[in-house]
């Protein structure tokens, strides 16, 4: 306790720079953005008088649809990124040490090329005469076929939430370029390294002899991956989810370049309001709306999880107490 007290001041001093940085470049701008939403706008693109007119304008029937679509696509991208990142991270962590840094470096290599240039290159790859178009049509057929097998209520739920489209897709009209699939695909491509890295960092610290122990006790490879490895790298997976989900929520370049008319996300709307309509308060309000949409469920989930953990701990303590008062095992 004593040592902690004396180091308190030093600790405070060392955290000061990052604290100041956060205050200056995160807290203050956030407050400014929030303040803008309570202003009107001027015809020339300036920020007008204090008013609630901006929030009133936000009652647009398009916005809930677009917000939901953004959240849905972010979920899809996060899901596929994690699914792909897990085996990657596992494989890299099991490589000989010399190879690990090489492969990890190779994963970061695309960042040496401009993001916009890479997305532009995808336009060529996704051309209607390309092989990815053929893959896309097959994928649509597989989706369509498996959709038919699902129970009715699930079909209706998927259509209602937008994860599936009602009715059959006309292959002659379906192109992968300018589709939602293109946006998800290229987003996964872009953000996969952000998913691999935190999971890999966690996997590198993971004790792989635990998997051997699980195998030894009768577990299959897949079972030990699921029951031992996954819980072991849980922290990494959680960071990976955040590292992918948050940037995708605000992305607008990929839907702009590859989504065509099929895929307008909230990021595009914010971009349009800010840069084309010159309505900064409106753009600020949309950004705030988006942040609230994400932060509220996330905060609720964290609160619920913490409560659950505390409850589990209490349960184990109670069991231990019961065991001890009953005088050990039967």
């Amino acid at each position: 306790m004593n040592g902690r007290k004396s180091s308190g001041k030093a600790e405070w001093l060392t955290t000061m720079p990052s604290l100041a940085w956060l205050a200056l470049f995160f807290a203050v701008p956030s407050v400014i953005v929030l303040a803008f939403t309570f202003h009107g706008h001027t015809a020339n693109g300036g920020v007008g008088e204090w008013s609630l007119s901006t929030w009133r304008e936000l009652v647009d029937p398009d916005y809930p649809t677009i917000v939901w679509k953004t959240v849905r696509i972010s979920f899809e991208v996060t899901f596929w990124s994690i699914i792909l990142a897990l085996p990657c991270a596992y494989a890299i962590a099991r490589m000989p040490k010399r190879w690990r840094s090489v492969v990890a470096g190779a994963i970061m290599l695309p960042f040496w090329t401009s993001f916009v240039v890479r997305v532009f290159a995808w336009k060529t790859l996704l051309h209607p005469d390309g092989w990815l178009q053929a893959c896309y049509l097959t994928w649509l057929k597989v989706c369509d076929w498996s959709f038919g097998w699902l129970p009715g209520f699930l079909q209706r739920f998927l259509v209602w939430t937008g994860f599936a489209t009602a009715g059959h897709v006309d292959p002659s009209l379906a192109t992968i370029l300018d589709s939602e699939t293109a946006v998800v695909l290229v987003s996964v491509y872009t953000f996969l390294p952000f998913a691999i890295m935190p999971i890999y960092t966690a996997a590198e610290k993971f004790d792989f002899s635990l998997l051997e122990a699980a195998r030894d006790l009768g577990a299959t490879n897949f079972y030990s991956f699921r029951k031992i490895f996954l819980p072991g790298v849980r922290q990494g997976v959680v960071s990976a989810v955040l590292m992918v989900f948050i940037p995708v929520i605000g992305s607008y370049v990929i839907p702009q370049m590859l989504g065509g008319t099929e895929c307008i996300l909230i990021g595009n709307k914010i971009f349009m309001r800010a840069m084309q309509n010159r309505n900064i308060p409106h753009a600020s309000a949309l950004a705030t709306l988006m942040a609230v949409t994400v932060l509220v469920p996330m905060g609720a989930a964290m609160w619920w999880k913490r409560r659950q953990e505390a409850r589990d701990r209490r349960k184990l303590d109670v069991r231990t107490n019961r065991l001890m008062t009953s005088g050990g095992a039967s």
Binding site: L210, I228, R234
Partner: peptide, 8 residues
Amino acid sequence: QNYALFPT
């Protein structure tokens, strides 16, 4: 040797 108990 390192027991390999499952920490979770």
